[in-house]
Amino acid sequence: MNNPIIELKRLTKTYGDFKAVNELDLTVNKGEIFGLLGPNGAGKTTTILMMMGLTEPSSGTARVCGFNATKDPLSVKRLVGYMPDSVGFYDTMTGLENLMYVGELNGIPRSEVEERALATLDLVGMSGDAIHKKTAAYSRGMKQRLGLAEVLIKDPKVIILDEPTLGIDPSGVKEFLALILRLSREKGLTVLLSSHHLHQVQQVCDRVGIFVKGELLAEGTIDTLSNLIFAEKSYEVHVSLENVIDLPWKDEAEMLQLDAVQQVRVQDQIIGITSSRDLTPAIVRFFVQKGYDVSGVQKKEYGLEEIYERYFEKNLT
């Protein structure tokens, strides 16, 4: 699986003093689904624009399918389908006409374009009357599908989707992502999608990169990412008590004596215990033996959400 199709090397984009993207190194291999995660304004869209040759990098290079995106954007655009975050169509034309126009711009002969367009629309699950309606009447979900059809009609090797799940309802998102996953597997497409919705991305991505303030903080599969960050802090148990604890807590030293306990934090009625193993039963037993009135025990687990949050926290401080 070492077959890079997108290679970004020290890619930098500055707007005046503001660094939107800072020395980004990123490789995406053929056939994988890569998720670019980050909050709004992290520089995801800017990075994508540089990959498509729609904006020039201040320094560094972006190579897509072996072509330099800045110097030879046309070759890149022939092989890469890009769906921007706000898809717009010519409102006075029907969905099919919009799609045929893009098909013709990609050099599909006039005699074939209608057939190809209909086949592509079928692929993304659009058919019937809807395709002959003016796009002004389309719902957000339909626009998204038409956008995907437009990306696919040129028979791309790579598709880049910028916030593809923005503004569609949860069931629509699920369907849409399943569609992308299926297409990618069937046609061997490389997919790069950017998002700030984690669990959505979690469902389909082979690999994710976390991108904050123009820098790629981490990349890898979701498992490796969580191991990487939470190596020292894998389990956390919060115990709530009936009464307020006087500080310093008299039993803190004894608690730390317990095997695998790493850290104890006390705040009002809540005691947070961090450990390298799951110690919940032992901790509860400990409190009961000491005669505390335990009102609640909460075990925290780490998913992508927490990984993400942790990165943002780190970055904020």
Partner: peptide
């Protein structure tokens, strides 16, 4: 939003 789409074509 059509400009981005057209400019993403070859």
């Amino acid at each position: 939003g059509t400009l981005t789409r057209i400019m993403a074509q070859p």
